[in-house]
Design a protein around this nucleic acid. Sequence first.
DNA 1: CGAATACTGAGCAATCTGTACAGTGATTTC
DNA 2: GAAATCACTGTACAGATTGCTCAGTATTCG
Lengths: 161, 161
Amino acid sequence: MGIDELDGRLLELLAAEPRIGVLEASRRLGVARGTVQARLDRLQGGGVIRGFGPDVDPAAIGYPVTAFATLEIRQGQGRDVRAHLATVPEVLELHTITGRGDMLCRLVARSNADLQRVIDKVVGFEGIVRASTAIVMENPVPLRIVPLVRQAARDAGRPAS
Amino acid sequence: MGIDELDGRLLELLAAEPRIGVLEASRRLGVARGTVQARLDRLQGGGVIRGFGPDVDPAAIGYPVTAFATLEIRQGQGRDVRAHLATVPEVLELHTITGRGDMLCRLVARSNADLQRVIDKVVGFEGIVRASTAIVMENPVPLRIVPLVRQAARDAGRPAS
DNA sequence: CGAATACTGAGCAATCTGTACAGTGATTTC
DNA sequence: GAAATCACTGTACAGATTGCTCAGTATTCG
């Protein structure tokens, strides 16, 4: 749907201080409260803002180990595998991908040793031919969106570029 | 820090309806407002809840293509590469990993064609030896945390297991 | 120029937040 | 076993915020 410069600033502000209300945001942005309210409604309605879910740190609830697993699936078993993985709590996300491997999933575990249990749970399923796992050591760039929002907002300035 | 069953229900509730306030949450959970307030403070103080940042959909702001790139780094160039990737808005997250490849990053782009530009920007840097990219086709399990929270809350019941 | 759209500034009733305090039950400590 | 500690409840109050509405103004566009 596209966002303009004000939308960008609003999103940045919300990312930086999520708990501020509409009124405070309007003050910070130097616009009327109604404007912020309208923008927010539009952003949410348009699907730009999916929600404001709490950002929970898996490490803080006992799952400090993160890993990515590339899975190779037996032909035609995709649907079953997806359903299976969806039932595993330690699978935080799952993608089907092109290239080597058919699926990529993000896992968490209580420890490196526990990761073995998780992998067994993931792989112990008809239809998964092979799995290759990479453990995350460091996370230099945590999941972020602000730079992209800034970029998108800038691009809105010159629409036809 | 560990979470108990009430923490779990609170997190679930917040995940399902992020905009509800403390008062409404206390009503839903059947506890006093002060309790919810105290729990929230503890969860945030303990780092379990990192924040309530807006969940922005890259697709909705013009970046519908997601990809994962595995990067191989020249010895000793890690720091520079990290710094470089941090400046690329299309890099949504970056991990250093074990196994084949040294880093894994999540990218977004305006189109498959545009992905080439992004990859060039990512790879066009001294220190990156090789990159292998997998385009995301489907996302059967979007990033989620509720199942894990439920698991963690359950485990709290039998601490020594 | 006229119409449509977006923004401003203001107002109002209802609600919520931050904070405090006393009472109660459960658990821990000595 | 008694005291102390801790978490939760229920209540209270002032101040702030929200949802909503409305009229006026600015800007854009055909």
